[in-house]
């Protein structure tokens, strides 16, 4: 779907849906996920349809993912960090799973 024009200076590892991916250090998370082959990142609340990154600038709220336990965060506004754990496919966030102790 997408490819890199510029070779990254370094790599970090993020876990997406339990699988490790090596991504460019400092890259936008939604970009990293598209490069890793994830097109749909969540499902719509009412009809349950697949949704992916759309506006790329934080206004459409379609690229929502769970990041390190925090549900419905905008992947297009976050940069990848080493060790980041990302979960896709959420339709309605279950808060009980995300309450930090």
């Amino acid at each position: 779907m997408f490819r890199r024009l510029v070779e990254p200076a370094g790599h970090v590892t993020v876990t997406i849906d339990g699988r490790p991916f090596s991504v460019a250090a400092g890259e936008t998370l939604s970009t990293a996920m598209l490069l890793a082959g994830f097109a749909g990142l969540r499902r719509s609340a009412r009809l349950g349809r697949e949704r992916g990154p759309f506006c790329g600038m934080g206004v459409c709220f379609d690229c929502l993912v769970t990041i390190d336990g925090a549900a419905n965060r905008q992947a297009c506004l976050v940069r990848v960090r080493d060790g980041m754990a990302v979960q896709t496919g959420t339709r309605l966030a279950a808060l009980a799973d995300t309450v930090p102790e």
Partner: peptide, 21 residues
């Protein structure tokens, strides 16, 4: 709030979860 998975079976006088979440 955004729509959330159902967690609240009863309304409170100041907090309730709608059928839509």
């Amino acid at each position: 709030t955004e729509k959330l998975a159902h967690f609240l079976d009863y309304p409170l006088g100041t907090i309730r979860q709608t059928d839509e979440g």
